[in-house]
Amino acid sequence: MLWPLRKSPTWNEINYWALDLETSGLEASDQILSVGMVPIRGGVIEFGAHYYSLVRPVRPGALSVEGIRAHHILPNELEAAPPLAQVLEEITQRIGRDVLVLHCGSIDLGFLRQSHKALGRRWVRPVVVDTAVLLARLDERRRQLEPHSKPHPSGLRAARAQLGLPPHLEHHALWDALATAELFLALRHRLQARTLHQLI
């Protein structure tokens, strides 16, 4: 995707939303259980403006109890949660024209696209920075200097540990989104990326 301006803006002039979805599984038939979003503005994470919500399942019968429990969610919490349409509206309103920051984003993007389609909503793919891609780029660069260096692990937790970031509470949409946002800031520095273009 081309940036509408001739010159790519400096990375920290852009507003980002780190986003994470917890889902009942990885198949197309699986459902979104929760979403966490944390904004990055002026290069700083504004945690206070985060968004976190559970999602009322479209097909409650199809959920396995184990699948839910892995995300520290109780079935009755899901029943009381807002419906998917409302949550999608909250998500898209927040993103607006901002950039999405995802870790291994193809899965989350797939679910977002899929759910929009299922509800007959319009989905415009935002500009995405994928921290897993940034990690791969960092490895590539390192291999040019040290051909036999080991690649960074691609898991969120392991990658953070390698970059000196503290352990976080995993499998929770909000904490994973925040963990992704912090990882993004660390990777941005390692890659010495100055413009958005260098990050996407």
Binding site: V44, I45, G48, L178, L185, H189
Partner: peptide, 11 residues
């Protein structure tokens, strides 16, 4: 405290 929390990274 939570609402005002900002997180920054300093290399």
């Amino acid at each position: 405290v939570e609402r005002g929390l900002e997180i920054a990274f300093f290399p």
